[in-house]
């Protein structure tokens, strides 16, 4: 015969023996669970072992989570607090996990999933743009063969370290393969350059010289001239005022 516990707390609780048989229960316990004389019968099968292992007198006071089955046959996640007054008498109190909390958690999970998707899209877009930028950089110093003697490299856009790295291989390779001795590098379409970029450029000039090229630079604007001076990097390149002048001179 299961008797009733009269707690002042409005929570489901049971007094049990060491075989987890129920000796008494609070009113709230029977509001929540189907009447039975064994605690195990109201616990989800995948939580039974855990409950058995936790509810041993030698463990003393314990708190743990398990899944239980309520009156409606629904599975419930609960917090259990238990202890033993003697080897034979144990008491367990059961608190249902806060529903709101789990709503918030699942909402949080949905948001997180959406964020991940967005994040992933952005990441992909970033990678795509980097690729485009790289390709763009590689195309911004094409080698144009004007005739067997003259090659032209018009440079476009900004000149910085990244750009130099991107164009260097291509420029050297095409210059090496082309028979042209005179090489014109045109700066007309360059809008900005920085110190590292210019340094890289002079290195490229040195390499081109080693390949036996004569280098002429055209299209250098006042702002570049100023910067080249300011960067104070030694070069022995021949500067020519306009692309048109030098080409007509060579082609004559």
């Amino acid at each position: 015969m299961i008797s009733q516990i009269n707690h002042i707390y409005p929570v489901p609780s049971f007094q049990i023996d060491r075989n987890l048989n129920i000796r008494s229960a609070s009113q709230e316990a029977w509001d929540m669970f189907e009447r039975t004389d064994s605690l195990m019968r109201m616990i989800d099968s995948k939580s039974c072992l855990k409950a058995k292992q936790m509810l041993q007198p030698s463990n003393g006071k314990v708190s743990f989570e398990i899944n239980m089955i309520d009156k409606k046959g629904q599975i419930l996640l609960v917090d259990c607090y238990a202890g033993w007054t003697s080897e034979l008498h144990g008491e367990i109190m059961i608190l249902e996990k806060n529903k709101e909390m789990s709503n918030i958690l699942s909402q949080f999970q949905k948001l997180r999933t959406r964020l991940q998707e967005t994040d992933m899209e952005l990441l992909k877009e970033k990678e795509r743009l980097q690729q485009v930028l790289m390709e763009n950089n590689m195309l911004s110093a094409p080698f144009i063969k004007i005739n067997d003697d003259i090659g032209l490299i018009p440079v476009f856009g900004i000149i910085d370290q990244q750009k130099i790295t991107a164009i260097m291989d291509n420029v050297l390779k095409s210059a090496y393969e082309a028979p042209t001795r005179e090489l014109i590098i045109d700066f007309t379409a360059v809008n900005h350059m920085d110190r590292e970029g210019w340094r890289g450029f002079t290195e490229m000039f040195q390499s081109l010289k080693l390949l036996g090229k004569h280098i002429y630079m055209t299209g250098v604007q006042p702002k570049h001239a100023h910067q080249i001076h300011e960067f104070n990097i030694q070069t022995d390149i021949i500067f020519k005022p306009s692309l048109q002048d030098i080409i007509s001179k060579f082609v004559k």
Partner: peptide
């Protein structure tokens, strides 16, 4: 199952 984490951790 061995009471080392909670469902919140699982989330």
């Amino acid at each position: 199952e061995t009471n080392r984490i909670t469902v919140a951790d699982e989330h």
